[in-house]
């Protein structure tokens, strides 16, 4: 019974990435979209909250914000909207941390 944790806010604006990461169970996946993609930038204070979790980032939102993939923490998957749909399908439910 795995869950997809959808986060859309910058970790430098509010606690949603932190709340999501501390609620996640081992099979769960976190998907960073919109302003949450900033959480995946390597060396950023927030990237430590992603350690030990399965994390994907929405590529179109990264590109829009000028973040090249080589700026990301190494174990983060970059996916497109089709990949987003696949994650919704492969997990049993979706939790949107709004």
């Amino acid at each position: 019974m795995s869950m997809l944790h959808l986060v859309n806010k910058s970790p430098y604006e509010n606690n949603n990435v932190s709340t999501a990461s501390s609620t996640m169970r081992s099979d769960d996946v976190m998907l960073l979209i919109e302003d949450a993609v900033y959480a995946a930038v390597k060396g950023g204070k927030a990237s430590t909250m992603l350690e030990g979790h399965k994390v994907s980032v929405l590529g179109p939102d990264l590109a829009a914000r000028g973040i090249a993939e080589d700026k990301l923490a190494s174990d983060v998957d970059v996916i497109d909207y089709a990949g987003f749909v696949d994650l919704v399908e492969s997990n049993d439910k979706v939790q949107s941390w709004l």
Binding site: M1, M3, S22, T23, M24, R25, K93, V94, Q95, S96, W97, L98
Partner: peptide
Amino acid sequence: SRAELGDVMAEQDVLFNF
């Protein structure tokens, strides 16, 4: 606790967020 709430969430079929 937060961990227990994570377990409660895991048992659900549908999560409503607002």
